[in-house]
Structure formats: structure tokens, C-alpha cells
Design a protein around this nucleic acid. Structure first.
Lengths: 315, 315
DNA sequence: TCTACTGTTGCCTAAAAAGCAACACTCGAA
DNA sequence: TTCGAGTGTTGCTTTTTAGGCAACAGTAGA
């Protein structure tokens, strides 16, 4: 029998190439002229293929070569392999042309409105062939999933930047005190003093979140005690909390653009450097190669958003 | 863009192999342990593939490697290529197993009955998957088509053996004088003297045929003159000729087994060495590689027929 | 028979692959 | 935090393979 020896089962492409060229040309020498290689090379490669398969593939006549039955089968196989290869190249260039691909975007709570309307709607419309997955998560989950390569791009407010996470762009978005429009604090001059705020009940986001780490830092630095009347993981809960009472919470203004525009809530500046210097970040896994589609989306997010560009991605 | 440089468009199988192994194993080192090659080899081969395509195929993490989108596409491609290769091997072994193949058999006039009943019916029944082409032709055409590789195997009576044609087996089949059962010649003792035959009208096969060359040779050697009352390319015509009159013709007995059995014609031995030593031959193109199916058929023809084996084919 | 053409072989050089050892890095745990 | 076991990578080396060159034996047609 054949091809059941220790052979790694893998047909050398060059063998098949020379075989097809010789059979197409009708003789090894003509093929060697076309390919600009020595006839001996082609002859030897074909013989190697024959020995690897244990079959005779060409009939050697005085005038050229012709395919045997097995040679014909192999020739058909080679042709099919060739078109499959062309198809492959097509698929790969589709990847380049953004006609194919998958992007996983992860956004921290509150960003969805703006991202959708500002960039994503447009991008999705321009590249309908792409599969774009846009999920919401807490800030910490955004960072974690980007770190674990479960999402390509993350957008997060005040993320905890760890090694392995790279901030592609950032914009200063002060952490504000959020109250309802009739709240007494709204009548004080901005930026609000910390002590003025602390006279009101506080609703705070849970521990482990980026925002909370800022708040905790301010608590330490200012040597005050922040007593939380409400702690919640849900921004919606906190919004509800300040809407219905005289409580105060700390949220970045981007997270409630909707409510601010409609006058349902008010964002007040706070007189503390840590609050003022809070930033939103676009993050990716450090040194992770991104697909062309993901690169393009990243590029558009950075240029269209009011982010200050932190570094140039290699595009 | 990618893959539009001067690359011969042919993906090295080894590159793809290492890529798939590394991605399946999850890390280059695990793959290198399984394959028993150095990690550096796999790393380099993958990099070469990436450079050839101009694409990043794997994400290098601290803990192993993972496929990028392009890598996934390439992996799919490789898998498909692999099953195609297995299919190919299947087809090739079908060739070996005589479940596939094509045989072209060419038989000189008169043989059909015997071949069909004796060998071919059985062979065809045992290998229904094979495509067996059995054509009739004049002796000269049998030789020519075998020589030009248009037929794999030829069976001919008294063929003109030229270099390039190899006789695999031969059987002595004397050229006989054919007459009808009541012919006066049948009352003479056999073998018949040449002169006795020449007193009757002759029907001869046309020039250029193997039989005719034998007859011509006898004409020269015996220093007689053979006057042909009828010359024809068709054995049927010659049979008809001797059936309906007192004419004589020279035909090998195998060509009219049917008529002999039914007593419609009689074959009489002729007293001349050339006539006695006429042979039927099984011929093939010299040094032409035959498919397994053709080899098998050849083998069976030689063993089942009353031929003396002339040489052992390399089976 | 001669001649132009075929495929093939032996010997050599160039190129590619594989082995070896050391390196830089990531990641999880002490 | 430091440490250590894991990862992929990079210079080197040797080994294997492909390719070039020239001469050869055989075929096919004039």
C-alpha cells in the first residue's frame, strides 16, 4: 500500500506545484523554462512525491510526460487546493477591508447613549458586514474583561489602571455631586466645598469600583468621614435616590447626560483636585494585536470623541 | 495590504501545520513537546507565515498563544485542507483496491467472444466500480493504439512486434486454412500441403495486417505465387466467402471458434513452419506504468488464458 | 542512421529547517 | 513585594533540503 508509512501526512506544496506545472506544460523541460528552474529539480521533486505516496504519477515518454491515473487524481486535488487558497486570501483581505470581523466593545455604565449616538451608529452603518458586540458592565468588569482579552476595547470612567491595561486616550471628566434641581446645594456657588456636601445624606457606589476609589481617596486626603446612607452597584438606583430626596451622590456627568439635559438632575462641581482630575479612558489590552476592524473603530472613537489622545496606536 | 507581494501564492504546509499544532496545544512549548521539536522552530515558522501573509495570526500572551481573527480563518482553512488530503488518500487507495480506475482494452477481430466469456465477464462482475472500455480493431490498429498509449492492453493475432511494444504473453495459434465442411480439401490428410491449397481460389486479408505479412512471407519462402481472388479487411467477409463457395482463406482458429463449434466452417492445418508458429500476443506499451486495475486485469488474462507466459510483469 | 529532444544522475553550492543555549517577559504564589 | 516556574524569542550552530551545472542514456522523427 501507500502513504501509510511514517509520513506526516502532509503533502509538500512544492511537490504538487512542480507536478502540475510539468503536466500542464507537457514536459519537464518546458516547465523548467517557464519557471526558470533546472529540469533536474522538477524531475527530482516529482520523484520524491511519487516515493512519498508510493505511486507512479507520470508516464515518462521520450517526448514529455503525461499523467497516470493517480497523477490525474492528484492534479485535480491540487487544483481544488489552489482555489481554496485563493478563497482564503479573499477572506483575509476582507478582514483588511473591514468586510468581515468581530469586535467586542465593553462600556461602563452610563456611556451607552453617547457612544451609540456619537460613534457606533455611524460605524455600524458604514460596516454592516462586521459583527459588533457592545456590552455594558461595571467599570471593574470592563477592566477585567479587557485584561483577559474577552473584550477588544473598553471605555470606562475612572478605571483602575493596572499593568497589562493600556489607556489609548483619556478625557478629564470631573466627578460631580449630583442632586435634584431644587436641592439647596444648587444655590451655593460652585465649586462646592466638600464640607457643604457632607451635610447631606450620601449615596455612594459600592467598593471596588473606580469611582469609589476616587471617593475613598478624597475621604482620606481631606481627613473627613464620608457616611454613606445608601450603597449601590447600580447607577440607576443612585439616580433614583437623589431624585426622590435631598441626598447627594458622586457620578461623572457623562453617565447622566440624558437626565441633565432634561433638567431632571443637576451636576455640581466639587472643590477637590482628585474629583476635578477624574478621567474617562479608552482602554485596550497591552500589546494585544487588534484586528483591522477593531483598530479602525478605536481610531474613530479616539478622533471623534473629546478625548485627548494619549498615544498613537500603531496604525 | 497583504499577500500581494511576489509570493508564489503557495502556503508552506509546514507553516500551517505548526500554527495549528501550537493553537490546538495552547502554547508553543506544549506543541513542541508533542511534536518533539524545539520551541524556537515553531515560533520561527509561525512568524514566517505571518510575515508571508503580512498579518498577525497569534496573540502572544505570557501564558501560551491564542488565535487572532486571521489566525482563526487560517485554522479553518487548514482543517479543510486536511480533510481534503484525507479524501485524496482515500481516492488513491481506491485506485489500489480496484474500486476506481479506467482500463482501455483493445482486441483484434475475432477475439471478442472468447475474451468476453472467458475473462472479461468475470472481471467486470467482480469490479463493477471500474470503467472498462473494450474495443475491437484491426491487428495493426491494436498495435498502433497500444504504442500511442491510447489503449492499455492489446490482444492481437500475429502482431507486428516493433520496439516500444512489449509482448507480455504469447500462445502458438497456427494459421489455418479455412473452408466449408464439404470442401474437397477436408478429405486430404493434414497437415495440408501448400500446393494442394493453391489449387483453390484464395480469399486473403488486406496488406498491412499481421496475418497478411505471414502469408506474404510464406509466399516468398515457398517460392509460390498466391493469387487472391478476394481481398478484404473484414474477417466476416472472408468467412462468408469460404462458406458460400469452394474458396480457401487463412485465419487463426481462435477468430472463428464459434463457427468451428457449430460445424459451419473447418480449420485445416497447413504444412509450413511459418503458419504453424503463428502466435497470439498480449501486448502493452513498453515501460508504460499501468494502473493497479490494469495490472490486475493483465495478470488474470495471462494466467487464465492458454498463453505461455513470456515474462513476468513487475507485480 | 543521425539529430534534436526528452528525463535522469552525480556532484556541488545555496538556502531553509532544526537543534542548543541563553534571554526577556508574564503570571501566580510565597 | 519578591521569587520562581512558566511563556515566547533570539543568536548561534549543525543538519537537511532545494537548486544549479554538466554530462548521460533514452526516445522519436527526419
Amino acid at each position: 500500500m501507500a502513504h501509510d508509512d511514517k509520513s506526516p501526512t502532509h503533502l509538500n506544496s512544492r511537490w504538487l506545484y512542480y507536478l502540475s506545472q510539468a503536466l500542464d506544460a507537457g514536459s519537464i523541460r518546458t516547465a523548467s523554462d517557464r519557471l526558470d528552474v533546472e529540469p533536474s529539480v522538477i524531475s527530482r521533486q516529482i520523484r520524491q512525491l511519487e516515493q512519498a505516496l508510493g505511486l507512479t504519477l507520470v508516464e515518462r515518454h521520450g517526448r514529455g510526460v503525461r499523467a497516470t491515473e493517480a497523477g490525474d487524481i492528484l492534479l485535480d486535488f491540487y487544483r481544488e487546493r489552489d482555489v481554496a487558497e485563493q478563497t482564503l486570501f479573499g477572506q483575509l483581505s476582507e478582514l483588511d477591508g473591514l468586510q468581515r470581523g468581530h469586535i467586542s466593545l465593553l462600556i461602563s455604565e452610563g456611556y451607552s447613549d453617547r457612544l451609540m449616538s456619537g460613534v457606533m451608529n455611524d460605524f455600524c452603518a458604514r460596516h454592516p458586514q462586521l459583527t459588533i458586540e457592545m456590552n455594558l458592565a461595571s467599570v471593574n468588569d470592563v477592566v477585567r474583561q479587557v485584561y483577559e482579552c474577552q473584550a477588544h476595547i473598553g471605555v470606562a470612567y475612572a478605571p483602575r489602571l493596572i499593568p497589562g491595561i493600556e489607556s489609548v486616550a483619556a478625557v478629564r471628566q470631573p466627578l460631580c455631586a449630583i442632586v435634584h434641581p431644587e436641592h439647596p446645594l444648587t444655590r451655593l456657588p460652585q465649586p462646592l466645598a466638600l464640607d457643604a456636601i457632607l451635610e447631606w445624606p450620601l449615596g455612594l457606589v459600592g467598593h471596588g469600583y473606580g469611582i469609589r476609589q476616587l471617593i475613598d481617596a478624597v475621604e482620606v486626603l481631606s481627613k473627613r468621614h464620608f457616611h454613606a446612607s445608601l450603597v449601590s452597584n447600580s447607577l440607576a438606583t443612585l439616580k433614583q435616590y437623589v431624585s426622590s430626596g435631598n441626598g447627594v451622590t458622586f457620578i461623572g456627568s457623562v453617565a447622566l447626560l440624558h437626565e441633565l439635559r432634561r433638567g431632571q438632575l443637576v451636576a455640581l462641581e466639587v472643590d477637590h483636585p482628585v474629583f476635578r482630575e477624574a478621567e474617562s479612558h479608552v482602554i485596550v489590552r497591552r500589546q494585544r494585536p487588534l484586528s483591522p476592524a477593531a483598530k479602525q473603530l478605536l481610531r474613530e472613537i479616539v478622533t471623534l470623541w473629546p478625548f485627548g489622545e494619549r498615544r498613537r496606536v500603531e496604525w
